[in-house]
Simulated scan of single mutants.
Amino acid sequence: MLKTPTLIKISGSCSLLVLLLAFSSCSTTQKAAGEKGWVSLFNGKNTKDWIVKIFHHEVGDNYGNTFRVEDGMIKVRYDQYDKFNNRYGHLYYKQPFSHYHLVVEYRFADEWRKDAPSYTQLNSGVMFHSQDPRTMPKEQDWPISVEMQFLAGLGDGKPRPTGNMCSPGTDVIFQGKKDPRHCIESSSKTYGKDEWVRAELIVLGDSLITHIIDGEKVLQYSKPQIGGGVANGYDPNIKVDGKLLKEGYIALQSEGQPIDFRKVEILNLEGLSPKSPLYNRYFAPEIPIK
């Protein structure tokens, strides 16, 4: 198991730089957005506000009804597939975000497709700071993005934390330096297959990012940027290595393991007023991040 990262209280502080990043480009519209409170990105009825992109398929083609809404949940299923054929899929919310607090509640369900790669068993996630799916060629496998990875235990008694960070086509700064690993483990406990898990992301543009699992901060890193490997088939004009990611799309993942999402909510922090009671929680400095 990887070394547990040192965590910094989000109620403490980022640096003055975070404040400058947060407010340097605020418009009147953005300020209003920051005061709306929690908003559900999933309406409980359909995915009309979402965009599908599945590897080997054009954007908008929901092959095999992969992403569907049943019982008030977004469900990822493969019962209409003839074979998996590495059809990694993502369901993107229609607009990008920069500074926000995201909540996703998920549970793994049904049986993993045995013709999917072995690492995908009880494995899914939510992508963020992602490229626009409409910029992805048909044969691009993974979006250039950062992933909050979801895992469950395999029943072998070995720890398998959830809320990890993976980086298709990206890099991050972890514990003061650019980390070469594709995935960085969190300090969360191991969850069982059928447990509902509450996963939260606090994203402050291209500065501090915090992962929270069931109320516990489990991972922090900073400066998400384009770079690294893993993503393939992309438009080379999109992959500008070293470019900091200030914003991007949020997407629910499909990679061979059925999963249910019952909640996807966001608190938009873009242009949050210093007079807001939420301001100190997210932006008042105490301990600068390196």
Rank of each mutant, 00 (worst) to 15 (best):
L17M: 11
G233V: 04
P143A: 11
K75M: 02
L272I: 14
V264C: 03
S273D: 09
P96G: 08
I8P: 03
H129G: 05
L102W: 02
F23H: 11
E111T: 05
K48V: 04
S13V: 03
G169P: 05
P288N: 14
E105Y: 02
V240W: 00
G157W: 09
G227H: 10
V52N: 01
H57Q: 08
Q121V: 11
K217S: 05
N237S: 15
Q257P: 04
D235C: 07
F128C: 09
H56F: 14
E216R: 15
L21F: 12
F108S: 03
T47D: 06
K275A: 13
I213W: 00
S118I: 12
F55E: 12
M148C: 14
V104F: 04
N237D: 15
D49E: 14
P5N: 14
P180G: 07
K193W: 00
T28N: 01
T47S: 10
F42S: 02
E216Y: 06
W112I: 07
G153T: 04
L267F: 10
I238D: 12
N268F: 07
L2I: 03
L154F: 02
K263V: 06
L151E: 08
V230R: 13
I238S: 04
R262F: 03
I213F: 00
V69H: 00
Y93D: 09
A199C: 08
R107I: 01
Y78M: 09
S40M: 02
E147A: 12
R281Y: 15
K36P: 00
E255N: 08
T4Q: 11
I250A: 08
V230A: 03
Y88E: 10
A152Q: 13
Y100S: 11
E265I: 01
G248Y: 14
E216F: 08
C166R: 12
A109V: 00
R77M: 03
G227P: 11
T28I: 04
T190W: 12
P288V: 10
N43L: 08
D115S: 05
S98M: 04
S40P: 13
R134K: 15
G215L: 06
L201S: 11
D235R: 12
Y221A: 08
Q131Y: 02
G242N: 07
K243C: 02
K177V: 14
F97Y: 15
N62E: 05
K31H: 06
E35Y: 03
L201Q: 11
D79N: 07
V203T: 15
L151M: 13
